[in-house]
Design a protein around this nucleic acid. Structure first.
Length: 291
DNA sequence: ATGGTTGTGTGACAA
């Protein structure tokens, strides 16, 4: 039978008795702290070649809006780009092969830094919220009384908890980003040695768990790679041999709302990017949703 | 062993 005849009898739009959410679909979402988009354009190209995500959420783009490399990224297939960047510091972006809508430039915890952007993308015929976050690192001293950067991190996490209780419970959402907290003992190379190191202190790990539980989010990476397996997404630049030392932390996360837990078809961390020439210190996390 | 490295409209500072 000629293809044209077959197309003529199979409508592209859902039949009246089908609800949009029942449409078959597959959406691959990646998150990556690239530590400067301009310094990492070749890596982004290689990552896209090898992984072909439909949506790529970036953190730490470190690029003023006016010189953001939108044109080469569009040529990679990401025609839809939304930014919260502004200056050479911080910065988040969502790149998508599918149209983005409902863009929200968030100003979480009243911090005047570009660290949060949200938008919707169509998945299985209905809007899916994408929340791309870059939580403040917090400086070196884990004491809010003497370190304003740590105080700002704590305030940011507390603000996210209240936000999460609304956004997470609404459903059809994916929260990704560099959350700068390794929440579980097996998310760091040494739980005991990192208990007083910013990113793994009880004050941070308990707060990140509060953010997650308030919204009922599913930690996608731990759904497929449960504890006690060690899983890391970040290795310091300061190690002589990052792979041999393997003193990593899981700072980068991909969460889905509870209603989408059953839609997770694949979840992967891509540590090979850490071995590429002049890498980011963070590696991508990728998840595929199917419906 | 309190170091070590990377990046930013170039220079102290964040990560």
């Amino acid at each position: 039978m000629p293809t044209g005849v077959r197309c003529a009898i199979v409508p592209a739009t859902p039949l009246p008795h089908e609800s949009p959410s029942r449409m078959a679909d597959r959406l691959k979402i990646a998150t990556w702290n690239v530590n400067s988009i301009r310094s990492r354009m070749d890596h982004v190209g290689r990552f896209v070649d090898e992984n072909a995500p439909d949506v790529l959420c970036l953190q730490e783009t470190r690029c003023p809006d006016g010189i953001f490399p939108s044109s080469p990224l569009r040529k990679l297939g990401y025609e839809h780009i939304v930014l919260n960047a502004k200056s050479g510091h911080h910065g988040v972006a969502i790149l998508s092969k599918r149209p983005l809508a409902d863009v929200v430039i968030e100003r979480t915890a009243g911090i005047d830094e570009p660290r949060h952007i949200a938008a919707t993308v169509t998945f299985a015929g209905a809007p899916l919220w994408l929340h791309n976050l870059y939580v403040p690192a917090g400086g070196d001293e884990p004491d809010a009384a003497i370190n304003p950067r740590f105080a700002a991190k704590i305030a940011f996490l507390d603000a996210l908890t209240a936000w999460s209780a609304v956004v997470g419970r609404a459903g059809r959402g994916v929260l990704v980003g560099d959350l700068n907290v390794a929440p579980l003992p097996d998310d760091v190379w040494s739980h005991k040695q990192l208990l007083s190191v910013v990113s793994h202190t009880p004050g941070e790990t308990e707060r990140l768990e509060a953010v997650r539980s308030a919204g009922g989010w599913v930690d996608a990476v731990r759904k497929v790679r449960p504890v006690p397996e060690k899983v890391f997404t970040w290795w310091s630049y300061r190690a002589k041999d990052w792979k041999a030392a393997n003193r990593g932390r899981r700072l980068d996360h991909l969460w889905v709302t509870a209603d989408l837990g059953g839609s997770l078809a694949a979840v992967e961390v891509r540590p090979e990017t850490r071995d590429w020439e002049r890498p980011s210190d963070h590696v991508p996390v990728v998840a595929t949703l199917t419906a």
